[in-house]
Design a protein around this nucleic acid. Structure first.
Length: 454
RNA sequence: GGCCCCGUCGUCUAGCGGCCCAGGACGCCGCCCUCUCAAGGCGGUAGCGCCGGUUCAAAUCCGGUCGGGGCUACCA
């Protein structure tokens, strides 16, 4: 699963890496689970590919267990140097002593001199005095009193190391220079920085990006919120629009610009300019951006982008009725009316359905007096006209006039008769594409129904 | 509870002591255009959480307060 929050970090990461000419390391921070859940990795990779981050721009996936030897080696070194000690306390022991579920470790085994053994965890001996300051690229300096940092666990009773520690060793292994991640990891930063120092290594530059929140201002969750990037792709959002929108969460290019080419954003982007307050993911604005990007496309590109929603197995009309030439003509008319790709389907379905859908609300609204008579007159007038938008419009307009109706009023019954709905593509162009025979058939069928009902 | 982070229109943001009785965008409202619906054009709506201080001058600096959030595992 690819969390939007992560997507955002990756995006920044990427922009930053491009800026610095670096490489992105894709690391699945899960020793065993990720191996058993290849779809996690695939999800991340496919989401990255969708956003335009191709395989040549990252390394990975990389699993912690691949570096097991180095992890235990580093842990042993810290133990040998007295920077870590063994502890046989269970969670229950600690709670019994401190009387508080939410209290950190109390340091009970600090000076008991326990050696390694089955069931004994290795804890880091946190400095008693002083403070650890995290100089963060996005939030400035944050001071953590060392006394407020508990003696956290480095390795479990079975010898396997924890994420926090494995992370540090892996960062060294990968020669990571910048750790850009989500704000929720900020409390881990001082612990890891202490670890770098204990290992005699230079800590990386930190950058903790704010989280993305839902309407309740809480961290987006995969369970509650639509946080998987792939879901947006499947709903018809364009990668370019998505990535443009995502870039604007917490950062803005100069000059009151919002929609601009990704290359320009990358060139202008500086991690130091990212603001540190959480942002709400506003789907309405994303949708508006998507519409802008769709309108900016060449018609041929728009048609190509619609393809996934035109596949025979997802489409509401019989596959053999689909005509790409007809679709191309209608698509040109639909482009300014589509904000999300799948919205194209109900706009053009009338052309490929044997009978148009019948939206009852539309019928009730449009098929009032004198609809039946008007439909009959229009049908008669359409028997002979040159079958082009201009003449079609003129004839309907003059029929309307004879009923004392404006064009706006007069077109409604015809529109509903032919397309089934009260709103849609420009009517006369649509009729021109549909053809005389089918248009007359639908008008006649609608007239009969209206008469029958009356 | 403890540690930490955050606080400009409903939302995303610009702003880094005078250019700001706060600019842009989405949303919303109105008008124009118009065969419906869009698109487009024009206009409008709405905000510096609060209280003190520093200063000739504060959205911008300082203190406090209130509010929101994150973390708090031998998970990642």
């Amino acid at each position: 699963m690819f969390h939007v929050g992560s997507a955002r970090s990756v995006l920044y990461n990427w922009a930053f890496a491009r800026h610095e000419g670096g490489t992105l390391v894709l690391r699945i921070e899960d020793t065993d689970a990720a191996r058993n859940r290849p779809e996690w990795t695939e999800g991340i990779i496919s989401a990255m590919a969708w956003l335009g981050i191709d395989g040549s721009q990252y390394e990975g996936p990389y699993f912690q267990s691949a570096n097991l030897g180095k992890h235990t080696e580093a842990a042993q070194r810290l133990y040998a140097e007295g920077r870590a000690y063994y502890c046989d306390c269970t969670r229950a022991d600690i709670v019994a002593r401190t009387g508080d579920q939410h209290h950190g470790y109390d340091g009970y085994c600090r000076d008991r001199g326990l050696g390694p053994g089955e069931g004994r965890a290795l804890r880091f001996r946190t400095p008693d005095e002083g403070a650890t300051v995290i100089d963060d690229l996005v939030r400035g300096k944050t001071v953590f009193e060392n006394s407020s940092i508990e003696d956290f666990v480095l390795a479990r009773g079975d010898g396997s190391v924890l994420f926090l520690f494995a992370n540090v060793v892996d960062d060294v292994e990968h020669r990571i220079t910048h750790v850009l991640r989500s704000e929720e990891h900020l409390p881990n930063a001082p612990k890891q920085q202490l670890l770098f120092e204990a290992l005699g290594l230079e800590p990386p530059a930190w950058g903790h990006l704010s989280i993305i929140v839902n309407e309740k201002r809480q961290k987006m969750s995969k369970r509650r919120d639509k946080a998987a990037l792939e879901a947006y792709r499947d709903e018809g959002y364009l990668a370019a629009a998505m990535r443009n929108y995502l870039m604007l969460l917490g950062w803005a290019p100069a000059g009151d610009r919002e929609i601009l080419p990704f290359d320009e954003m990358v060139a202008e982007f500086r991690i130091e300019d990212v603001n540190s307050s959480p942002a709400f993911f506003d789907v309405k604005k994303l949708r508006a951006f998507n519409g802008e990007y769709i309108r900016a496309m060449a018609v041929a590109d728009f048609i190509a982008a619609c393809e996934p929603w035109l596949r025979p197995d997802v489409v509401p009309w019989p596959a053999e009725k689909f005509d790409p030439v007809v679709f191309a003509e209608l698509a040109a008319l639909a482009q300014t009316r589509v904000a999300l790709l799948p919205e194209i389907v109900p706009m053009v379905d009338f052309a490929f359905l044997a009978d148009p859908v019948r939206d009852e609300a539309s019928w009730a609204k449009a098929m009032k007096e004198p609809a039946a008579e008007l439909l009959a007159e229009v049908a008669a007038a359409y028997e002979q006209v040159p079958w082009e938008a201009g003449p079609l419009r003129e004839r309907l307009e003059s029929v309307g006039t004879s009923f004392g109706l404006s064009l706006g009023k007069a077109q409604a019954p015809v529109r509903v008769a032919v397309t089934g709905r009260t709103v849609g593509l420009p009517l006369f162009e649509s009729l021109a594409v549909l053809g005389r025979q089918e248009t007359l058939r639908r008008i006649e069928s609608a007239r009969e129904r209206v008469t029958g009902l009356a």
